[in-house]
Write a protein that binds this DNA or RNA. Structure first.
Lengths: 206, 206, 206, 206
DNA sequence: CATGAATGAGAGTTCATTCAT
DNA sequence: TATGAATGAACTCTCATTCAT
């Protein structure tokens, strides 16, 4: 992904790891509190005091585990990005061709978004707060989509030529459908939405 | 859309309108400075002092025209939302069917995004800073797309049934393609991208 | 009044007098607006813009007539102080002795306070905003009371020796009774209150 | 009144209480600094920076203990109101009748005012800055006076009928005598002033 | 490891006053 | 005289981060 050059997806290992069981519990509590807080109020209206008080730990303890409010946010974005991946990956192999698989992936993503509505607020805000993590998220997502499409093209399932733009287009569709039918409203079945896309991808609208 | 042409969406309702020519110049300077500042640094890293100093006016003058930093941001979002609309609308009528028209719309949008790269930072951040303006932007955008698709369906140009999900899918594609090929990189011609989408919408990928 | 040394009761003639009829009307409008504004909101929560807009004149016009917000306030305090005096003085001569006269004075003052409830807010706040005007008000008031009492003592109406403390005591009674039965509530007739004081002054409570 | 003795009226309900000894010291320093600052300069000319710098603590520490400049002022008014009460109450029981007792109360109040000259500036300004605390102060003061007078009337010490107006009259006398002979000048002995009032209340001026 | 008081840079906002028109 | 835009000093309050206990 040429445009993604410069993204730093490898900034793992910052922040301090807990060494005791008690420490592990405190860290967990902080992460959960942060996810709720950032999801509800956004990065700037969230405060470290509020996060620690949600977590039931002392203010100072925050800095035992994180270097800064930003570094916690970054950790959260990476975590959620990974979770999406882990949630969607298992449904990709299955009956049917790649277009069917993309439909299943969208359905799985919609389900995930419904269970974790805060994901949009957090990942979207990463554009401003943690640009590297944000670029990493969308960069790897689009790369994965493109690889799948290329492989399908090679297998003759798609009438190419497939290029990067297709992957961006599909990611955009998924993101906005996830926003609309995952977060903003749940009035339609995820399979229904997946079917709409499936038809579009298979035969177009014409 | 036509009804919107020329109307100053920036100063609707809130904030005070200037009564003299000098005041009009000051207001213009503030809006321009704000667009640049917010586009470069985002809402929270932008400051009113910095905006006024860019604009070459005194700090206090800001509050002659705007109630708050937020209200300026809101005004800007509405303004840019209107500009996108005004930029895209003229290309919609033309030769070919609705799918061709959507392709032209995307190309026009890409050109606009290239000329106004700050639009993404500003409209995206509105999700957090001015949620109402943000919802209004995407809400009217999707409505307009849906109307066009429905009309085309009625004309028999599209093999329905068309529903809201199609509009969201198309908006998502456009937004992410605009981000990728309008803002992040300009290595491909806008017609090229439009053609990719055109093919997808016309015949799918199958 | 030894303690009042230093008060500047003579600062008349500051501010600019209007020379035209139109100017006279503007000045009048400003004074009326100021009285209402200061009475409602107090000095610090009142603003020059608000006063001028109440008066229906332009902001800049304020400085055509007053040097500053404070100087307007000072003018108002002197004005109201004079009005109290002018309202009470006429009732002093009359049937009965000096104690009767003091009762009539209190009744007249209560009536005035009921018609001009803002007087308390304005004169009380003068302690902080225009100390000289405040000292002048209470200084001349107490002097006038003391003179009357001394004269009555000379006439044999009072069993002396009368001194300054009596005057302060009576002024204090009047001020607090005016606050209670003039401003805070009007449930008792002013003659009723005057009668209570009359009895106290005539025979005490014992 | 007795029930009030020793209780910290300063920290009732609002504002945060310190949990450590160090915190207690900081809070104390802030309160002392505030009393001096407000007493000298009044509420509006006092600033939080100035108060904290007097107290020798950082600006931010102010907000560890108080919600706002106003809330500190309110706390101070309540505190001083309580202190007056606690200072005067002990002298009420004693030899003689209720009129003697009121004289002792006035003398005690004068002494207190001499030691705490800032009390007038602070309580008077509360009319504008903390109206509730101001009303509470004068309301409870007048109630207590009225109760004492009624009880004395019942015991046959006073020739009634006593009503609320008497209490307001006496409070007014005390307040203005306290201002004149407690704050503005100390040239007369407090017993002297008390004696003047004693005679007035016992036999009137007639 | 946990605690919470202390710190202070920095931000947004107000408004009396000035002044060009 | 009247107007209202322009000015900028001054102020309150926030909050991420540090550190002594």
């Amino acid at each position: 992904m040429v445009a993604m050059r410069g993204m730093d997806a490898t900034m793992t290992g910052e922040d301090k790891a807990p060494r005791t069981e008690r420490g592990r519990r405190t860290l967990r509590a902080l992460l959960d509190a942060a996810r709720a807080e950032f999801g509800e109020k956004g990065f700037h209206d969230s405060s470290v005091v509020s996060i620690t008080s949600r977590a039931g730990v002392a203010l100072g303890s925050f800095y035992t585990y994180f270097d800064s409010k930003e570094s916690l946010f970054r950790a959260l974005v990476k975590d959620m990005s990974g979770q999406v991946r882990d949630h969607v990956a298992p449904v990709l192999p299955g009956v049917g061709d790649q277009i069917d698989a993309e439909g299943r992936a969208l359905a799985a993503f919609l389900l995930f978004a419904r269970q974790h509505k805060e994901i949009y607020r957090i990942i979207d805000e990463a554009e401003f707060v943690a640009p590297d993590a944000w670029k990493a998220h969308y960069g790897t997502t689009v790369e994965r989509i493109l690889e799948r499409l290329k492989a399908a093209e090679t297998r003759g399932e798609l009438s190419g030529p497939i290029d990067e733009a297709h992957a961006w287009a599909i990611m955009g569709m998924n993101v906005f459908l996830g926003l609309r039918y995952g977060v903003l409203g749940e009035e339609r079945a995820v399979e229904d939405i997946a079917e709409v896309v499936n038809r579009m991808l298979r035969k177009g609208l014409g």
